[in-house]
Write a protein that binds this DNA or RNA. Sequence first.
DNA 1: TTGAAAGCGCTAACAG
DNA 2: CTGTTAGCGCTTTCAA
Lengths: 266, 266
Amino acid sequence: MSRCLNYPDQIAEHTRLKVQDAVEALGYSPNFGARAMAVRRTNTIGAIIPTMENAIFARGLQAFQEELRRHGFTMLVASTSYRPDIEEEQIRTLVARGADALLLIGHERAPEIYDFLDMQGVPSLVTWAFDEDAKRPSVGFDYAAAMHEMATKVIDLGHHKLGLISAEVAWNDRAGARLLGLQRAMTSLNTGDLQVIETKYGIEERAVAFDLMMRSGPRPTAVFCGNDVLAMGALRRAANWESISQTTFRQLGLMTLNLHILLSQP
Amino acid sequence: MSRCLNYPDQIAEHTRLKVQDAVEALGYSPNFGARAMAVRRTNTIGAIIPTMENAIFARGLQAFQEELRRHGFTMLVASTSYRPDIEEEQIRTLVARGADALLLIGHERAPEIYDFLDMQGVPSLVTWAFDEDAKRPSVGFDYAAAMHEMATKVIDLGHHKLGLISAEVAWNDRAGARLLGLQRAMTSLNTGDLQVIETKYGIEERAVAFDLMMRSGPRPTAVFCGNDVLAMGALRRAANWESISQTTFRQLGLMTLNLHILLSQP
DNA sequence: TTGAAAGCGCTAACAG
DNA sequence: CTGTTAGCGCTTTCAA
């Protein structure tokens, strides 16, 4: 029977048909776990992302999945809500489930986790982050450079009081790199006034972040947001602040892919 | 060893420690497949959605997953790109992987699939759709009623030339119900002019749909969109049509949760 | 409290 | 080409 399903060409016509009939009649479905155990391989790649609520991850996974499918692989997803402890748990879970390899977001995690993966012989690919020097392969962007370039441009426009609404930086090298790029630009251009607000991803937290920034300390004339999700949260809240020009705002409403928000004249 | 990990209290202290040490030293990780095979149960629920690109599904799954986790269950996700054949494949895959139950989107699928699930003894829950009469449990909304109510309101505002940008209706009971609700409202209010455009979910297709609607036939004064993703696509394109008032448009830009787009005065 | 062994569903190797 | 069997890693009896 096993041969019949896996190497149908090595089987005599009539035997194959007999088996096929039985399969249909019995509603047979192969048991993946048993197969995996026998061949010691699952053709499965595990992917662990912070959250599916950020479309950037959801879309990335969708594409990854389709590509894997094309090559006969299956993707297993898990999400961590940006919590390192949950991530570790998910990694262990996926390895236990026999993932042949793992897709991970960002480089930053406890070394024991990498040791664990090494012992288990499970290869991993880091994405949404790139580091030449890392021991593992990675593919991603240079967030620090991107942020540096953007900040330079904004500062050149005359903005000196800047704000950054960022995801929590701890264990998030993307957020860290963006902050770094911004700080570097400010240093090299001798601009000193930066207000950083770290926020969680909840609806409420995101909304509050913008108000907080506008209310506390010297009000920035330009606010950067670490990503689209944060930007949308800030945008919605910005609508309540009359100092923000309608035109600018309307344009921004369309630029959902934009990473920064300009507020008023410097 | 098995006992040690599963019923540690039935084990003598020193034996347990010995095992624990070995676990650490060897970097042991339990094999999920083997366990599942032995206990004939995976504590895993499979979830199959059309696409993760629609945030409504992604967010729903995120919540579902967190709740499952809380109860010691794991979620396995798969997506179908709205293709019935892929959905069937994914269902079989998840069943093969030993999913204890399945979460499915919408009721509409080939009866053989339900037969298959019955034979395998895999229970399923249908969501994003509700049907009292269905043999399976389901939880969802009454799209037809919602669309009916909305359409009635819009028609009352004086709009008679209506448009609907919809996902492909085949095998998608949500899209079907929305169309039905719209048609019913029009019938009962004696309004006859409806132009329907079905579109795929690709970026390009979505953008084209709106232009197509504006160019062909009697131009509608109100366009409904089946969901947020379609609405955003239409909105972006609508920006190019000058007949659309800026004010309306700006408001709409903010109402990303809105299901319909009003265009011009009726 | 521990050791031993059967068996979960499958594949691969070997013999016929 | 087909039948048979060992063994994948685990749990669960059953004995000791």
